[in-house]
Amino acid sequence: MRLTVNGEEHDVDGVVDVAGLVAALGLDARKVAVELNLAIVPRSTYASTRLAEGDRLEVVHFIGGG
């Protein structure tokens, strides 16, 4: 399945939902937030939010800032 994650194309195999994608990217779900096609994905719904070909995602976290 081809997805656009943080502006870059990713070809992911065996990933069906947001929880699977976060794990496949090697990230701790408790430390990130996810936007799917411009809509927030609540953390509690990562496992039930299915992904589809061509989806656009943003995966963000907190960094230092003023």
Binding site: N6, E8, H10, L27, V32, V59, V60, G64
Partner: peptide, 15 residues
């Protein structure tokens, strides 16, 4: 704090 994209090429960097 600021909010930015996770660096997907190095998910092990300090958070």
């Amino acid at each position: 704090v600021a909010l930015r994209r996770v660096n997907l090429s190095d998910p092990s960097q300090p958070m």
